[in-house]
C-alpha cells in the first residue's frame, strides 16, 4: 500500500469509529430513559458547544483556563530551571535537598488544591500554584539530569577552547538541560493544563473547569460532556503545537 492510500484507510477507519459510536449512542438514548439521563444527547451537546461559541460566552472561560495553563508552565519551568541548574552544579546542596525534593514530588499534590485556594483565593493564582507544583518537578528532574549527563569530554573541550565557568553554564550546561526540557514538553504542558482544570473544578468563579462544576451541580450532563469535549480538543491542539515547536527547537537532534 502506498503511504497516501494508507493515510486514507487510517482516517476513514477513525471517522467510521466515531460514526459507529454516535449511532450506538443515539440508539441507546432513544430506547432507554436511564441511558438518556446518564449519557445525554449528542445533539444537545453539539448545540451547547455551538451556543458557547455563537454567543461568545466560552471565550472568557477558555481564555482564563489557557492563561492559567500558560502561567503555570512558564513559572514552573523558570523555577525548575533556576533551581535545577543551581542544585546540579552544587553537589553538597543537591545532597542536602535530595530527600526534600523526593518527598515533595511523591506527595499527592492534588490534595494541595484546597490549601492553595485558602492561600491564593479563588482567582487564577490558586490554579496557577497547583499547575506549578505539577510542572515544576517534571522540568526540575529533566534539568538536573540534563546537566549531570553532560559528557566530561564536552566540558574539557569547551575549557580548552577558553570557556570560563560562566561560559560553561551558558554555552554547555543550559543548552544541554534545555534539550531534556524540550523533550518533556508534552508532559509538562499537559500537566499545566491538568493543574488549571482541576484547580478550577475544585473551586473557582471562571474557567472551563468552573463551567463543568456548575453544570454538575444541576445534573446537566450535556453541558458537562460539552466541557469535556472542549477540554479534550484544547489538549490535542496544545499537543500538536508542541510537536511543531519541538521540531524547530530540536532540529539538531534529527539525523
Amino acid at each position: 500500500m502506498s503511504p497516501a492510500v494508507q493515510r486514507t484507510v487510517v482516517w476513514s477507519c477513525r471517522l467510521a469509529l466515531i460514526g459507529i459510536l454516535l449511532v450506538a449512542w443515539v440508539i441507546a438514548i432513544n430506547h432507554s430513559k436511564i441511558a438518556m439521563f446518564f449519557l445525554g444527547s449528542p445533539k444537545v451537546i453539539a448545540e451547547h458547544l455551538f451556543q458557547w461559541f455563537a454567543t461568545g460566552k466560552i471565550f472568557r472561560h477558555l481564555g482564563i483556563t489557557l492563561l492559567e495553563t500558560m502561567l503555570s508552565f512558564v513559572i514552573g519551568c523558570s523555577l525548575a530551571l533556576v533551581l535545577g541548574l543551581w542544585l546540579a552544579l552544587n553537589d553538597i546542596l543537591a545532597r542536602i535537598c535530595d530527600p526534600f525534593i523526593k518527598g515533595l514530588n511523591s506527595m499527592p499534590r492534588l490534595i494541595m488544591a484546597p490549601i492553595f485556594a485558602v492561600w491564593f483565593g479563588l482567582g487564577i493564582w490558586s490554579k496557577v500554584a497547583l499547575g506549578v507544583t505539577l510542572v515544576f518537578f517534571v522540568v526540575f528532574f529533566n534539568v538536573f539530569q540534563g546537566i549531570r549527563e553532560v559528557s566530561p569530554v564536552l566540558i574539557a573541550n569547551a575549557r580548552m577552547l577558553g570557556a570560563r565557568r560562566r561560559d560553561l553554564v551558558r554555552r554547555v550546561y543550559i543548552p544541554s538541560a534545555m534539550s531534556w526540557v524540550f523533550s518533556s514538553l508534552h508532559l509538562s504542558v499537559g500537566l499545566a493544563f491538568v493543574g488549571a482544570v482541576i484547580g478550577e473544578y475544585l473551586g473557582s468563579s471562571a474557567g472551563v473547569g468552573y463551567l463543568i462544576l456548575e453544570a454538575e451541580g444541576t445534573f446537566d450532563i450535556e453541558t458537562v460532556l460539552a466541557g469535556v469535549i472542549l477540554l479534550t480538543t484544547c489538549a490535542l491542539t496544545l499537543d500538536y503545537i508542541i510537536t511543531l515547536v519541538e521540531e524547530s527547537l530540536l532540529k539538531w537532534q534529527a539525523k
Binding site: 559528557s151 569530554v153 564536552l154 574539557a156 580548552m160 554547555v172 534539550s179 539538531w252
Partner: peptide, 19 residues
C-alpha cells in the same frame, strides 16, 4: 588550563546543539 594548547579529543567533543 594551558592557553597555548589546542586539544583534539579521541571521543566526540563537538557541541551537538551548535552547527
Amino acid at each position: 588550563i594551558n592557553s597555548h594548547a589546542g586539544y583534539m579529543f579521541q571521543a566526540e567533543a563537538l557541541l551537538p546543539w551548535l552547527t
